[in-house]
């Protein structure tokens, strides 16, 4: 029996398995974008807006920098046993002029990455329990 896919964090991304997007908010007054969502007071000190609309962030961007975890991060990270090192990328979204970090999908090593490389957003397993498969956003080299 297959497990139920569940978002590892509520409301941070669309649960569209083929073309997922991160979900931010846009201030209706100054148009600045926030991720994770800002929903009460605009953080632009020249604005003062209090109304926001949900917005999908660009699902492609270019690598600003990258690294990896050769050792298992501490809790609350749920590490696989045995731990498998994975890469992490900071990806710059052009339209939002924003850098977003995320895990890189398994199989892509640091040696495969370089600044400026195009990456796309996917949903992948963060961890699993008996019933559920918890999903999180990850970056993977754009097809």
């Amino acid at each position: 029996m297959s497990k139920t896919p569940v978002a590892a964090v509520e409301g941070w991304f669309t649960m569209d398995l083929d073309t997922p997007h991160l979900l931010g908010t846009r201030c209706t007054r100054c148009s600045n974008v926030f991720f994770p969502k800002e929903e009460s007071y605009c953080r632009n000190p020249d604005c003062g807006g209090t109304e926001f609309e949900e917005t999908k962030l660009s699902r492609r961007g270019r690598i600003w920098s990258f690294t990896n975890n050769c050792y298992a991060p501490p809790e609350p990270f749920v590490a696989k046993e045995p731990f498998e090192p994975y890469s992490i990328a900071a990806v710059e979204l052009e339209a939002e002029k924003m850098i977003v970090i995320g895990q890189v999908t398994a199989g892509t090593q640091v040696a495969d990455l370089e600044a400026g490389m195009e990456m796309e957003l996917v949903l992948d397993t963060l961890y699993e329990d008996e019933e559920n498969q918890y999903l999180v956003w990850k970056w993977q080299p754009a097809a």
């Binding site: 600003w64 920098s65 975890n69 370089e114």
Partner: peptide, 21 residues
């Protein structure tokens, strides 16, 4: 920590790699 496993050295690594690039 939960979603990305972004320890402090992960951020240090990002900044270091940026200098290399």
């Amino acid at each position: 920590f939960r979603l990305v496993g972004a320890t402090n050295p992960v951020y240090f690594g990002l900044w270091a790699r940026r200098r290399m690039e």
